[in-house]
Structures are given as C-alpha cells and as structure tokens.
Amino acid sequence: MTDDEIDWPRYLADFHRDRAGVVEAVLSRSVGGDHTPYRWLARAVGGGARTVLDLACGSGPVSRELTGDGRTVIGLDLSSAELRLAAERGPGPWIRGDGLRLPFKDGSLDAVTSSIGLVVITPLTALMAEITRVLRPGGVLAAMAPALRPLSPSDLRILARINTRLRGKPQFPGPVELAGFTKTLQAYGMRRVEDQRERYRFTVTSRADAELVLSALYLPQTRWSRVEAAIELLQDRVARKGSVDITIPMRRVVAIK
C-alpha cells in the first residue's frame, strides 16, 4: 500500500474513536525546559485574544491551557470520542465539526490554534482558506506540528532502532513539518511572525510507558506484530538502563492576518 492508497479519513476516525486521549497522554508528559508542547503553543496567543478557536482540539489540552478570564475558547474536532473526553476535562464549548467547513462567520475570531491539525486536515490550502476567512484582520494563527529536528545523534539512534522494528515510521495525511507552509501563508494573506522549534522528552520507565508512546503514533501501514517488536525493544532497554528517553521535536509557526 502506498501513501496515496491509505484511507486517511477512515484510519483517523478509527484511531481517535479507539484511542481517544492517547495523544494528550503522551504530549502532556513530554517536557522541554519548563513546559509541555501544549503550553508552548498556548503561549503564542496574546492576552488580547478574546475569542479563540482550538482547531482539531482532540481531548482539549490546548483549549484548557488557553482558558482565562473573559476569554471564550471553542474546541472543534471531528471525533465524538475525543470531544466526550474534552467535555469531561474542561468547560468548552466543544463543537463537532469539519475544519474545512468551519461554522463561524467571516472575521469573527481573534485567534486560531491547532496542535497537529495542519498536518492532519487536508488539503492544507482549503484549510487555510477557512482559517483566514474566520479570522478578523490582525487575527493570529498559532500552529504546531511534529518536526524532524532538532535531534541529537543519540536521539537519532534510538528512533532509528524503533523505526527498524516497525519497518516504517509514523505518517501523517499532510506534509511533514508543514513543508512549504510559508508560501501557503503568503498566498492567503498571512504574515509569518515566528517560526521556532523545540525538543521534548518522553521518558519510558515501564512496558506500560512503551505501549503508550507507540499507541499514540499514526502507523496506518504497520502490523501490530511490528508495534509489539518496538515495545519489546524499549522494554529491554528499560530493563538494562532503568529508563529510555524518546525525543519528540516540534515546530511552532505564528502568523498574523
């Protein structure tokens, strides 16, 4: 099966129905300096933003980071299972909706955030058309996505061993690292004001940790036996060394309409 043959809508629907909250469970334990990726993304939204859309909100971690006095944070996602978890964990409002058909008036939002939505919702051009439509002039887009760097040589070694066991690597429907995103922003009248990278660490100290971090990956072409082999690799390393750090590089882009 090639990348083009993956039924991404079905895969994503099944993944988030069966594993609701798993991405948050991993990233909320992934630390870089004094913050998680979710807190890093939320910090890109200034205090003047009163109405914020958290696009592809999942179980709501970024929405909760953004919540504050006088601010309305609306979480939107296609997954009912993720939204049920979000409703249990935060005030909302939570809306089931499609990022390509946002249920908001033109120019009605001060900011849009998304933790991985821009590499999941396709095509990116149609998504950007909707985002720019609903943002007011001067409104902010703050987006985060998995990246390929920064990684140290030791980071690369453990990730290469995991990918060898998987006989592949995690995939996304959209372009890795938001490839070509600067040109896309310009095409839709957005001005990039920030482009930064951070390196986060998820520490595996048990088989349960190994199962958790592997279950949070999009692996549409990988058999479970291969996932089990990667889990056993981490379990063996924990048995020998006590723990193993999985590095998760992220990229954050901020743009103004």
Score class of each variant (00 low, 15 high):
residue 212 L to Q: 03
residue 98 D to S: 08
residue 13 A to G: 06
residue 28 S to N: 15
residue 234 L to P: 03
residue 177 E to F: 07
residue 183 K to T: 13
residue 149 R to Y: 12
residue 219 L to Y: 07
residue 43 R to L: 00
residue 44 A to E: 03
residue 137 P to A: 12
residue 125 T to P: 04
residue 165 R to K: 12
residue 18 D to Y: 07
residue 12 L to F: 05
residue 3 D to F: 15
residue 96 R to W: 13
residue 35 H to C: 15
residue 19 R to M: 02
residue 6 I to S: 07
residue 145 A to G: 02
residue 134 V to C: 01
residue 212 L to F: 07
residue 37 P to H: 03
residue 249 P to H: 05
residue 134 V to G: 01
residue 85 L to A: 08
residue 248 I to M: 15
residue 214 L to T: 06
residue 173 P to I: 09
residue 255 A to I: 00
residue 210 A to H: 02
residue 157 R to H: 13
residue 221 Q to G: 09
residue 157 R to S: 03
residue 79 S to H: 08
residue 235 Q to L: 07
residue 80 S to R: 15
residue 122 T to M: 13
residue 219 L to N: 05
residue 81 A to Q: 15
residue 149 R to S: 03
residue 84 R to Q: 11
residue 77 D to E: 15
residue 4 D to H: 15
residue 18 D to H: 14
residue 189 G to M: 10
residue 231 I to Q: 04
residue 131 I to A: 03
residue 57 C to H: 05
residue 254 V to E: 00
residue 110 D to F: 08
residue 232 E to I: 14
residue 10 R to H: 10
residue 223 R to K: 09
residue 132 T to Q: 06
residue 145 A to L: 10
residue 129 A to F: 04
residue 215 S to V: 04
residue 218 Y to S: 15
residue 223 R to D: 09
residue 115 S to E: 06
residue 95 I to F: 14
residue 195 D to S: 01
residue 118 L to A: 07
residue 190 M to G: 12
residue 69 D to G: 11
residue 79 S to F: 07
residue 228 E to S: 12
residue 82 E to F: 14
residue 35 H to R: 14
residue 113 T to Y: 00
residue 241 K to R: 14
residue 97 G to E: 10
residue 202 F to L: 12
residue 201 R to F: 07
residue 170 P to N: 12
residue 239 A to Q: 08
residue 164 T to S: 12
residue 184 T to N: 05
residue 125 T to M: 07
residue 167 R to D: 09
residue 128 M to Y: 10
